[in-house]
């Protein structure tokens, strides 16, 4: 169990940084946004992993006495997912406007055009 637990956290670290790599190294704006959403998903995974209790079940009460996992991280992440898609949509809206005004969504092209 311990190894699996650490594995969850390691995967969090790797996903976080894979997303971050796309944000800093990829010149394409849509790719940057996809990287940002991977970054976000990694944080969600961290929260949900911390809320888990061994041998627990989802915090929905049943007749039998059970161990329930912590509902609080779940509530925070549930709303964060919906907020995440709204902000991603806003980002995509800005990208579409950039494409219309600059004719490109590559960072290199846009910097070049701004320099002129």
């Amino acid at each position: 169990m311990n190894v699996l637990g650490l594995f969850y956290y390691w995967v969090f670290a790797v996903l976080l940084m894979v997303g971050f790599y796309a944000v800093i190294a990829k010149p394409n704006y849509v790719k940057k946004l996809i990287g940002l959403s991977i970054f976000q998903a990694a944080v969600f995974l961290l929260y949900i992993t911390m809320g888990k209790i061994e041998d627990g079940t989802a915090p929905i009460f049943q007749a039998a006495e059970n161990v329930y996992s912590n509902p609080l991280p779940q509530v925070l992440i549930l709303t964060a997912i919906v907020v995440g898609i709204s902000t991603t949509a806003l980002g995509l809206g800005i990208v579409v406007r950039i494409r219309e005004e600059y004719g490109s969504i590559e960072e290199t092209d846009i910097k070049e055009r701004d320099r002129k």
Binding site: V30, T57, I60
Partner: peptide, 26 residues
């Protein structure tokens, strides 16, 4: 990880709506 509500949200939003929005932007 026992987060049934979150799983439902992620499946509906991440796999459903966000794919459509990204494709619309593409």
């Amino acid at each position: 990880l026992d987060a049934a509500d979150v799983a439902l949200t992620e499946a509906a939003i991440g796999a459903g709506i966000s794919t459509v929005l990204f494709l619309g932007a593409l």
